[in-house]
Design a protein around this nucleic acid. Structure first.
Lengths: 250, 250
DNA sequence: GGACGACTCTTTGTTGACAGAAGACACGTT
DNA sequence: AACGTGTCTTCTGTCAACAAAGAGTCGTCC
């Protein structure tokens, strides 16, 4: 639900509501939340609840850097080890993305893009790196949402994919690595360029509190103590207040 | 408890026993297990329970590669951005490790080593990379345990730390990156060399079943479906059999 | 009129109990 | 004697209920 955008970034996770919605009880929901917390999709404040993680721009840039490294390394490895079947599979995925782009099928494009990167990392033989890269991509989706569905960006991304494959097939490890890193950093730049679009809080139908509602907040001590990040619920903590008066102007 | 070695790799996590031992009930234990599962310290099989993750040698090598990349990148960044305070902090940690090595203080050495790498990654400015690297180190500890407490290895590791710092301070990004990668790959080689030592199952006081006890095992379908790894409980699944007759020879 | 304090309500944290599943043991059959 | 089947026990998965803590609201006092 988080990745699908049904739960907005910063949104409070109401355990009972989720349980009834999923047709189960609070126990399984809590266990799931603990798992999401560990992979960084959710932040929990003791005695207050859990919130969908809000990725700051600085953090997003960090994630891009890690992905660039891992992707570049995978390309470098593939330049030496790629098999004809793998080449064909990657080319097919790239071709599929091109047609999806022409058909203006953003959803299909994203699915294929994910498969492409997953296959690339997987072929390189480091399953764990592939898993990490996928999780980082998930977190990035929390931030960028669909701000990247600009057609121009899709085309540019496709060109970079082709360059990566060319470098893998004929360029040698160093060039392949550079192409891989360039692609991710290109995505990073596209993200930075279109960031202002998603800057507007797009919480959909949720009532939105003002940016400086007085709140105790306790400086966000999380249960595992790793990410001391202010949850900033964004909307209401107690539904009652929002439903009755809406935003309380300080 | 896993990192401290109280729970051996492959050991079954008995929820009720853990709950009573920790003075709580099964709910919080289950939530904690879900978190550990997400970061890869625990593997769960449905309707069978959770086991401390067993890291295969191939996986361990993968983890080393990822750490090498991240560490090398951090060194490259630090070569351009390191401040005098950071240099001093890293030098102090390296010096502390040297004295710990001379004093044969393996525990102190490991603690300092962890701090050193944490500080290195942290100074490089990518908090997430630091976190990932730390988690990977935790997982590696599942495997290598204390096979690396050989004095010779400590000395070699110290020399590599010094080389990293030298390269960061005077060598430029490329040399610093190479030094960082060389250190982690050196650890990888030391791990491979001493691997046979830890190969002997060191489960301590646990009764150990024979290597080929017939078991259904269901090929280990996990709850999240990511790591299809055979749990291989290693010891007993039901205490009764082991307590009554011990190992049943086929 | 504004600020402080008590009260109430909602939500989380935790517990105990129940149902289902899976393995182990014992018995009967081939 | 070996194999298959039935039963039993144990453990996990899930649920409903209780206790505690925090936040909002209302009343009172300065």
């Amino acid at each position: 639900m988080i990745l699908a955008g049904e739960l907005a970034a910063g949104e409070h996770l109401h355990e009972q509501a989720l349980a009834t919605r999923l047709g189960t009880s609070r126990g399984p929901v809590r266990e799931a939340i603990r798992g999401l917390e560990r992979i960084g999709l959710v932040v929990t404040v003791v005695n207050q609840g859990s919130y969908v993680r809000q990725v700051s721009e600085a953090e997003a840039l960090e994630l891009y850097e890690i992905r660039a490294l891992l992707t570049g390394q995978s390309c470098a490895i593939l330049a030496r080890t790629v098999t004809p079947e793998q080449r064909r599979a990657l080319r097919d995925l790239a071709q599929g993305m091109a047609t999806a782009h022409e058909a203006d099928d953003a959803a299909g494009y994203f699915a294929l893009n994910r498969q492409f990167h997953e296959a690339l990392l997987g072929f390189a033989g480091n399953a764990r790196a592939a898993r990490i890269c996928g999780e980082l991509g998930n977190e990035l989706n929390l931030f960028r949402r669909r701000a990247l569905s600009v057609a121009q960006n899709m085309r540019q991304s496709n060109a970079e994919h082709a360059a990566m494959l060319d470098a893998i097939e004929a360029g040698g490890p160093a060039r392949a690595r550079a192409a891989g890193e360039r692609h991710i950093r290109g995505g990073k730049n596209r993200f930075t360029a279109t960031r202002t679009i998603s800057e507007a809080p797009d919480t959909g139908d949720l009532p939105q509190a003002g940016p400086n509602t007085a709140r105790k907040q306790d400086q966000g001590r999380t249960t595992n103590g790793t990410i001391q990040e202010a949850p900033d619920p964004g909307g209401r903590r107690r539904p009652r207040a929002a439903e009755r008066g809406g935003v309380r102007p300080s």
